[in-house]
Design a binder for these strands. Structure first.
Lengths: 184, 184
DNA sequence: AAAGACATGTAAAACGTTACATGATTGC
DNA sequence: GCAATCATGTAACGTTTTACATGTCTTT
């Protein structure tokens, strides 16, 4: 269909549930999907402009300026929904992962082991924090799975929990191997 | 130190082990670290040029044109090694993950469940393939852990195995949830 | 003879982040 | 009154991918 910039699909996906402003979209991304996707204002606002030009979204009138505060909410059009569905119907996915932490471990031969151990420990701490939040979300969502939309949110959170727990197991293994090696 | 482009660090890291040409570097990336980092010729060759200008690498003379086939091998300099070590010594890591598959699941509410199921199954098949290879690598590497450098390679492969196994467990859960929901 | 691997490099395009610029409203 | 949050948007910058351009060598 279109050039299929991914941020476009994120916006279309979010708008398929509710009317949102650019600012709202940024928050939805940060709060809900930040562990597997990111987006900045610098990409969101231009995307909204051209999605509107292409007819996939439109400005919603209703919630206009009661207050003097500027706010432009968008809603998805039928064409936009078709576009979203076409993208969803292609089962091929590109998953682009950049783990700087693995890069640093991979090249750990160039430094002493305690340097790599510090890198692992910093990673571990970060993951422990995030995992707590994901587990909290997961527990809350597991109570409301009768609502169809919640199932999809639950599954992405569950993915996060599964991989983050794997990260932590790996951290244990890596710490053990690198500290044992020190003693030999 | 420098602007610290990540591809620079990848190149420096690879050259810290052995002399390599741009073409070799591309292969090392594709063969060894592709599941957590990528790099194209279009980024490698320009990076080699400026790394040389900055004095972090130099052209190695020895293996010059015995054959008519052009080949420029680079080796790391002391300055380059310091630069690499400085980067490794910063334990903060930026891990940038983009899972299009999760995006498609997250927005699955806009399509019928069989569409999302197909996406999961395609992902699962891909992961199963890659996991086999990772497990093969891991087994071979586990026999040569007495060599220090192998430990770091082993750990990155082990990370891959851990996360890929997690992906497959998640695929099972997701398939079950989405197909049960169909029957209600 | 052809295909595929080896080998280097450039140019255009796409994409995204960061920082900047601006201003209103809300809560303490 | 001040800080935080709400809110939109642009411009500069940097990075990376893709495609192109070119040519050699090895294996079948």
């Amino acid at each position: 269909m279109t050039k299929e910039r991914k941020i476009d699909m994120v916006i279309l996906g979010l708008l398929s549930h509710e009317k949102l402003s650019g600012y709202d979209i940024k928050k939805r991304i940060d709060d809900g999907i930040r562990f597997f996707w990111k987006g900045s204002f610098g990409s969101i606002y231009p995307a909204l402009s051209h999605l509107e030009k292409e007819g996939f979204i439109r400005k919603s009138k209703e919630d206009s300026n009661e207050s003097g505060r500027e706010r432009i909410a968008y809603e998805i059009t039928e064409a936009g929904r078709s576009n979203l569905q076409a993208w969803l119907s292609d089962s091929k996915t590109v998953n682009d992962l950049k783990y700087e932490v693995l890069l640093k471990i991979f090249f750990g031969g160039a430094v002493e082991n305690h340097v790599s151990l510090a890198t692992i420990e910093a990673f571990e701490k970060e993951i422990e924090q995030e995992l707590k939040m994901l587990q909290f979300f997961k527990q809350n969502l597991s109570k409301v799975l009768h609502e169809r939309d919640h199932v999809f949110f639950y599954l992405t959170v569950s993915f996060g929990v599964e991989t983050y727990e794997g990260y932590l197991r790996w951290c244990q293994e890596a710490k053990t191997m690198l500290s044992e090696q020190n003693c030999e």
